[in-house]
């Protein structure tokens, strides 16, 4: 990108400027936005090819492809923003397939009038997240919609990876007797977002857990544990993801409430709003289901990784034709942990 010619009369005004319809119209304005913002931030040889698609070297193994659309309000939150979130979200979807992510593609839908300074922050955050993860953003697209027809920025990312040889992970492979592991505390991302919602706002030192998990996954695969399922419990939280697995595997899951880590401040915020952290979104956690004999070993591998410091064995897979997820409560009783009904709403009166 260093050989780029200065073909534009004036550089983009990244301080005061705003997104205009022309930035998505395919003309010179769009080329300038791509050159001065996206290509500069994402800078890599594949993107520098400057073509409609990226020409990539042959991959060695089974390909994993995953795609995720990101919409979040507010766009900037404690611990991250829509930019890094859109990188982590897709990397994690590829990683929990037991794969090493190799490349990302990103597509932006921008709303007319959106401040270029904010866009710059988001794009730089994406670039930083991708660089940290060691996965380049090799191709992309930008469209602009009229003011009022978008929510600032929507970002869709697609990730390609290569599955580890001999590893097959799938939601239908949980077997009675398997142990259920969780990589850390739940509810941090969802409550970080909730704390900034209009009408519900409160002050709390809650930081989104958004993070790329493929390093942790690689360490877990390296240890040779007999892994059956990996999933990242995002929307709908831990409860929803476990119900998906139980249904796919036609088995029950039995949890121990006291074993599930929750940050005290997240628990407190949930109490305030009548929310259950089991249903609150995460963006940097994974659930692992593995053969019982390997559970302790897998747990110590997770503990040794920076993103698994608070990992815990939270339950086990049991025979249950109904596919219920059940939990032994802190009090010693039992309850069903059901699917989420609609969006989780505060319950206060």
């Amino acid at each position: 990108m260093n050989t780029k010619k200065p073909i534009y009369v004036r550089p983009l005004d990244l301080k005061q400027g705003r997104v205009e319809m022309a930035h998505g119209a395919g003309g010179r304005a769009m080329a300038q936005l791509i050159d001065e913002l996206f290509a500069t931030a994402f800078d890599n040889p594949f993107l520098a090819q400057g073509n409609d698609g990226a020409l990539l070297p042959p991959a060695n193994g089974r390909l994993v492809l995953s795609c995720d659309a990101h919409v979040v309000s507010p766009l900037f939150f404690a611990g991250g923003d829509i930019g890094c979130l859109s990188v982590h979200g897709t990397l994690n979807d590829v990683a929990v397939m037991g794969a090493q992510p190799l490349y990302l593609a990103a597509s932006f839908i921008l709303e007319e009038g959106f401040p270029l300074a904010d866009l710059k922050r988001i794009v730089e955050s994406m670039a930083h997240a991708a660089r940290e993860a060691g996965v380049p953003i090799v191709t992309g697209d930008t469209k602009v919609v009229e003011r009022g027809k978008g929510d600032g920025v929507f970002i869709t990312t697609t990730g390609v990876g290569v599955a580890r040889e001999g590893i097959t992970l799938s939601g239908d492979l949980a077997r009675p007797g398997d142990k259920v592991l969780l990589s850390g505390t739940i509810g941090d991302h969802g409550m970080a977002i909730m704390s900034q919602r209009e009408g519900l706002a409160f002050d709390a030192p809650i930081v989104s857990d958004t993070a790329a998990l493929h390093g942790l996954v690689a360490a877990m695969l390296d240890c040779g544990a007999d892994l059956h399922v990996l999933r990242d419990p995002t929307r709908g939280g831990l409860a929803t993801t476990l119900n998906e697995i139980a249904q796919q595997s036609r088995a029950g899951i039995s949890l121990t409430e006291a074993a599930i880590p929750v940050n005290p401040v997240v628990a407190a915020a949930c109490e305030f709003l009548g929310l259950d952290p089991l249903y609150v979104a995460n963006e940097g956690k994974l659930i692992a289901i593995c053969a019982e004999r390997d559970a302790e070993r897998l747990l110590s591998v997770m503990h040794a990784h920076p993103l698994g410091g608070r990992a815990a064995i939270i339950g086990e897979v049991v025979e249950d034709a109904h596919g219920f997820v059940q939990m032994t409560t802190r009090l010693g009783g039992r309850r069903v942990v059901d699917w989420l009904t609609g969006e989780q709403l505060p319950r206060i009166c």
Partner: peptide, 22 residues
């Protein structure tokens, strides 16, 4: 419900859920 209190009670102590939900 949330704490599974019914499991801690003997079978002959039965809780009936009243109408106190606005």
């Amino acid at each position: 419900s949330r704490y599974g209190i019914a499991d801690l009670l003997p079978a002959n102590v039965r809780m009936i859920h009243g109408p106190g939900c606005p």
